Simulated assay, not measured.
Amino acid sequence: MTRKPVIEETALELFASEGFEGASLGRIADAVGIRKPSIYAHFRSKEDLFLSVLAGAMRRKKHSLSRYVLSRAEAPFDDTLLGLARRLMNDYEDDVETRFLLRMSYFPPSALHDEVMALVNPFLGQAERGLTKLLALPRNARRLHAEDAESAVLAYMTVLDGLLAEAIYGSRDKALRRLEAAWPVYRRGVLKNDGDANRE
């Protein structure tokens, strides 16, 4: 019997390229090399398969992004945030799982809107809280203009949202050009100058 992960991996690729509506269970079964009824041994419906694929992709992306941030624990936080933005835009172009996650987050299937948002919103909330903790560390907080780290993170998430939308609607190159233009403005808005930070 075909293993569940093989079905999910194949479904992810088709959902990413053709959307929820375009990726029928018959197409998924054909791509796996099984008959359509075999899918029902693992999933109740196409909707069940889609939500399982989405939840798994989110778990893996959360782990990957957390590892990236932790690996840069000693780097200036603004460099880490810039690297994170670049990484997400590159991943959107090069990684089918990231492409799937972003497309489904921005354009969830209408029939599954509430279920998708019930997964996406906690994911984003956890990301905001994690970055806020990072910026609230004393070595980072003393560099901030903002009254608190939360303001700097909310501003970052707003910039990131616009950049990822550009990557989806336009291209990675256009999004990266916007990032290079916007990033110095963001830094000036949230960071004290070096002299001010060093005097504290």
Rank of each mutant, 00 (worst) to 15 (best):
L119V: 03
L49S: 08
L144P: 02
H145C: 11
L51S: 06
E115R: 15
I168H: 04
R86F: 08
Q126L: 12
R3Y: 06
L135G: 07
F15E: 01
Y186V: 04
V6S: 07
L84Y: 10
E13A: 12
G26V: 04
R143G: 00
L179K: 05
A175Y: 04
F20V: 02
E166Q: 13
P5Y: 08
Y156V: 05
V53A: 09
D196K: 11
E21P: 00
H42P: 01
S52C: 10
A23M: 08
L70K: 14
F43S: 05
A155Y: 09
H145I: 12
E200D: 06
D79N: 08
V53Y: 05
S38Q: 13
D194A: 15
I34P: 01
G130N: 14
N121G: 00
T132H: 04
A11L: 09
D148E: 12
S17G: 09
R103H: 08
G26Q: 11
Q126C: 03
R187G: 01
M117T: 01
N90P: 00
Y68T: 02
M157L: 15
L154E: 06
A111T: 08
L131H: 03
A73E: 07
A11H: 04
A41C: 00
P76K: 10
L51P: 02
R60S: 13
R142K: 15
E18P: 00
L82P: 00
R87K: 15
M117K: 14
R44E: 12
R187V: 15
L163W: 05
A31K: 15
R178V: 01
K133I: 02
L84K: 06
L12V: 02
D48M: 07
R139H: 13
E166V: 14
L25T: 05
S105T: 08
S64L: 13
P5I: 09
L112T: 02
A41I: 04
L88G: 10
A75K: 11
A141Q: 09
A127Y: 00
R44V: 06
A16C: 05
L81F: 11
L144S: 06
E128C: 07
S151L: 14
A55T: 03
D194N: 09
P5K: 11
V6R: 12
F43G: 02
K36H: 05
F100N: 01
F77H: 08
V6G: 00
R103I: 02
V153L: 09
R27H: 10
I34V: 15
F100M: 05
I34T: 13
Y169S: 11
R67T: 09
L179M: 08
A149M: 10
D194G: 15
D95S: 07
S45D: 04
A146C: 14
T132Y: 06
E200Y: 06
H63S: 13
L14W: 04
I28Y: 03
L81Q: 05
D114S: 15
Y92K: 04
R60F: 07
L135F: 08
A111F: 01
M117I: 11
R72A: 12
V159L: 15
K133A: 13
P138I: 08
V116M: 08
L14E: 02
A73S: 14
F77M: 11
L82Q: 06
L81K: 05
A149H: 04
S52T: 14
H63T: 10
T10H: 03
M104K: 03
T158M: 12
E74A: 14
E13L: 03
E115T: 00
E166K: 14
